[in-house]
């Protein structure tokens, strides 16, 4: 299994800083290739003239989501190796609403403005200087904002638990939603500008089918994540508790196991009905499952 720099608490070391720079290099290339070094193209998403922001962002999101889910499914990485930001409803709702206003006014967001600056856009430079100013303003006003900054802090919250869905079920639904959004975006461009290069194209059909199939594949890879996990987690906990108490009672009453000497006598007497499964209980840990327990009975 991979050990991440975050998990090693080594994000400040030279190898991590160098790696962050390399990843940033790839990030910058991807942003610029997508055309995100142009504020006009970015703003287009809000006027339905150029939906590239939606297409690129959701393609990237589902690629990383499915890629990570498969890697977790194969056991190459575990989710607790990755930094999971807390859910703070107040801060994220107000922050998101404000951010949208700034995004549509400036027609840049922080990452795309860096790409825009690299492509010589003066409005990107002005936007970045504004963002530095906005950060300083936040620091100066922090004592006033602090209650909002922590308002509705829920700790780490996964969306499928919040919605009471299974992980795999949510991923499939989200992938289908992304595909529907792509087709709608193409249609919107066609209505607004008269042309849409990908609407109904063999490329978009194949692309959509590929991702839906990948999302569906997760049900095969890890069926345990196909049930709503809050419910199943609760069931598992109670089962464990029940098992533990009943097992302890049985240990007390010696009805669950057989003493080695007794077993030896019975073996020597070659009794036909020796319950072989009882051997397991001798080295059983307390967390034995319901199935194992029913075998013992």
């Amino acid at each position: 299994m991979i050990n991440t720099f975050y998990n090693l608490n080594a994000l400040g070391t030279s190898p991590a800083l160098f790696l962050a720079m390399l990843i940033g290099f790839g990030f910058g290339i991807a942003l610029e290739r997508a055309g995100f070094s142009s504020s006009r193209r970015l703003a287009g998403v809000f006027y339905f003239t150029d939906m590239a922001v939606i297409k690129v962002m959701f393609s990237a999101l589902i690629t990383a989501m499915l890629g990570l889910s498969y890697m977790v499914g194969f056991g190459w990485i575990s989710m607790d190796q990755v930094f999971l930001m807390p859910t703070i409803y107040g801060a994220q709702i107000v922050g998101g609403l404000l951010f949208g206003v700034g995004f549509v006014m400036g027609a840049w967001c922080p990452d795309t403005a860096i790409a825009g600056l690299a492509a010589g856009r003066i409005d990107a430079l002005v936007f970045l200087l504004g963002a530095i100013g906005g950060s300083i303003l936040f620091n100066e006003l922090f004592p006033l904002i602090q209650p909002l900054y922590q308002a509705g802090n829920q700790g780490t919250q996964m969306i499928y638990n919040t919605l009471g869905m299974s992980r795999n079920g949510f991923i499939l639904a989200f992938t289908l939603l992304a595909m529907a959004t792509f087709w709608l975006s193409e249609w919107a461009e066609k209505v607004r500008t008269g042309h849409s290069p990908y609407l109904g194209s063999p490329f978009l059909k194949a692309f959509s089918l590929f991702f839906v199939a990948l999302a569906g594949g997760l049900f095969v890879l890890d069926p345990t994540l196909s049930r709503a996990s809050t419910a199943s987690a609760a069931v598992t906990t109670t089962t464990t508790v029940e098992t533990k108490t009943t097992l302890m009672e049985k240990v007390e009453l010696a009805s669950d196991h057989i003493e080695p000497e007794k077993l030896a006598y019975r073996l020597m007497a070659s009794e036909p009905d020796i319950p072989y499964s009882k051997y397991t209980i001798l080295r059983q840990d307390w967390r034995c499952s319901k199935q194992e327990h029913s075998i013992l009975k």
Binding site: L98, D123, G130, S135, F138
Partner: peptide, 20 residues
């Protein structure tokens, strides 16, 4: 661009992150 930048800079601190 400047006003948008100020708002985005402030909002990203509040939400602990931006679009990326």
């Amino acid at each position: 661009a400047l006003m948008g930048g100020v708002i985005v800079g402030f909002a990203s601190r509040l939400a602990q992150g931006c679009t990326s």
